[in-house]
């Protein structure tokens, strides 16, 4: 089972044009800011929207082919969907919800219900058969929605912000559960999310979507370590600069120069974590070979540390202790030197 999609759709401000491949048993996390086209992509794959151009092939079956005028309707696509607010049918019991797909395919009620019971048991929801959706917690509702989608054996499972409706306390538990259930499903899975942690935990591979285009994709660790856009860098908490390298230095478009630990050439991304940045009032001496004079734009609490946003030739985020903020008398508008050791900087081709 594998998905091979090439989609084009223009709707209002959004010009979506993406290629997407999901392998058998693979979980791909589609990460991006609001309005990037994530949900539109899901609607296209589910068949509730028809693409302007491109093809969708699932398991060797053509679901969409704009040039040939092919569009397979949602109910014949074998694509399952679980959305943020789960959309359990409110007037049916939990059991009827799960059995709905089989009943719709003409299975007799008894057999459909027997199988639905089995799925509820797998989801750890025995005894909840007769409940109404309104009587479930968020995590339980999600498992019911998952069982309802999986019972008809879809070839592709689409999850739209599956954890967004949960409160922060239950989210980690449900996320781990969801990961376990997805691991047991043999088809292709596409998870849409704007939460980087969710994408990293659930996805075997992360695809980053911005303004309708794929801007980066790769294994979660790779994306986290080597962001290619400001959006990803901010999500994973890294400083990201773009410049042109020559030997052990790289020049930024602003003219500032960054010292590197290794040789590099050509266009590069330069990334370093905010905790690697040291702030001081005078130009530092010693092994920190990168030092830039900056102006503080903003201070905000960030866990136990204070995140300092500083602007200048090299815009930098720095995480420092509250003690350092007090010692240095940091405040917006103040001048400061930011320094980073070359060994803390990772450089990779842009």
């Amino acid at each position: 089972m594998s998905l091979d999609a090439d989609l084009a759709l223009t709707r209002g401000d959004l010009a979506l044009r993406i290629g997407l491949a999901v392998g058998p048993g693979e979980v791909v996390a589609l990460l991006g800011p609001n309005g990037a086209g994530k949900s539109t992509t899901l609607q296209l794959l589910a068949g509730t929207l028809v693409p302007d151009g491109g093809r969708v092939e699932l398991d060797g079956v053509t679901l969409d082919d704009a040039a040939a005028g092919v569009h397979v309707r949602p109910r014949e696509r074998r694509v399952g969907m679980v959305v943020q607010d789960y959309l359990l049918f409110p007037r049916m019991s939990v059991l009827e919800n799960v059995a709905f797909g089989l009943r719709s395919r003409g299975l007799p009620r008894d057999r459909a219900r027997a199988e639905a019971r089995g799925w509820l048991a797998r989801m750890g929801l025995e005894g909840y058969e007769r409940r109404r959706p309104a009587e479930l917690s968020g995590g339980q509702a999600q498992r019911v929605a998952l069982a309802r989608a999986l019972i008809v054996e879809p070839r592709l499972l689409l999850l739209d912000e599956p954890l967004a409706a949960l409160d922060a306390g239950t989210r980690p538990v449900v996320r781990a559960e969801l990961r376990r259930h997805l691991a047991g499903y043999g088809g292709c899975t596409l998870v849409v999310t704007h939460d980087p942690l969710e994408a990293m935990v659930l996805g075997d591979r992360v695809v980053v979507l911005e303004r309708g285009r794929v801007v980066q994709q790769g294994p979660p660790a790779e994306v986290a370590r080597r962001p290619r856009t400001d959006y990803v860098a901010r999500l994973v908490g890294l400083n990201l600069l773009t410049g042109t390298a020559s030997g052990r230095t790289a020049e930024l478009p602003t003219g500032a120069v960054v010292a590197l630990a290794h040789d590099a050439t050509g266009p590069v991304h330069i990334a370093f974590p905010p905790v690697a940045v040291t702030l001081s009032l005078r130009r530092p001496e010693g092994s920190a070979r990168n030092a830039w004079p900056l102006v503080i734009a903003d201070l905000e609490a960030h866990g136990d540390l204070v995140r300092v946003t500083a602007d200048g030739a090299v815009p930098v985020l720095a995480d420092v202790t509250p003690l350092a903020v007090a010692d240095l008398g940091l405040e917006p508008g103040g001048q400061v030197w930011a320094s980073v050791k070359a060994s803390e900087i990772s450089v990779y081709p842009a």
């Binding site: 694509v79 969907m81 959309l87 797909g101």
Partner: peptide
């Protein structure tokens, strides 16, 4: 809700 029902084969 109708979209979900359709993806379930209804």
């Amino acid at each position: 809700y109708e979209d979900v029902a359709a993806t379930l084969g209804a």
